[in-house]
Measured scan of single mutants.
Amino acid sequence: YETDHQDYCEVCQQGGEIILCDTCPRAYHMVCLDPDMEKAPEGKWSCPHCEKE
């Protein structure tokens, strides 16, 4: 199925295993987040940009 999420990391602009924000189209590698994540979040997750809003 098609999503509106970007298929690359917002921080480093590379693809790969990325996690998707449930609020906006941004996507991130877990290691590119500050602080980085050990494992993928369970349930709904909002990226740092959305958390600030």
Rank of each mutant, 00 (worst) to 15 (best):
S46G: 05
D36A: 09
P35E: 04
G43T: 05
E10L: 11
A40V: 09
H29M: 01
M30G: 08
H49E: 05
A27L: 07
A27T: 09
C12F: 02
K52R: 08
T23E: 04
C9H: 01
V11E: 15
S46T: 09
R26C: 02
H29L: 00
W45F: 07
I19M: 15
Q14N: 03
G43Y: 06
Q14A: 04
C21Y: 01
K52L: 09
C50E: 03
L33P: 03
D22R: 05
Q6A: 05
Q13R: 13
P35A: 11
V11M: 15
E42M: 09
D7N: 06
M30N: 05
E10C: 05
I18W: 06
M37G: 06
M37E: 03
Q14Y: 04
C24K: 02
G15I: 01
A40H: 15
E51R: 05
P35C: 09
C47W: 00
Y28G: 06
D4W: 07
T3F: 12
C24R: 01
K52M: 03
V31N: 13
S46L: 07
I19V: 07
E10V: 06
P41F: 12
D4Q: 13
D4Y: 11
G16E: 14
K44S: 13
L33G: 06
R26E: 03
E53K: 04
G15P: 08
H5R: 14
V31R: 10
C9S: 01
T23H: 15
E42Y: 07
A40P: 06
D4L: 11
V31K: 12
S46H: 13
H29K: 00
T3H: 03
C12D: 00
D34F: 04
I19G: 08
C50L: 02
A40T: 07
I19F: 03
C9K: 02
T3R: 12
E10T: 09
I19C: 05
H5F: 10
D7W: 04
E2Y: 15
K44V: 08
G43D: 07
K52W: 04
C32S: 00
K39S: 06
M30F: 06
C9N: 04
Y1S: 13
C50M: 01
I19P: 00
I18Q: 07
C9Y: 00
I18R: 10
C21K: 01
D22L: 04
C12V: 00
G16C: 04
L33K: 08
G43P: 06
Q6E: 04
T3P: 06
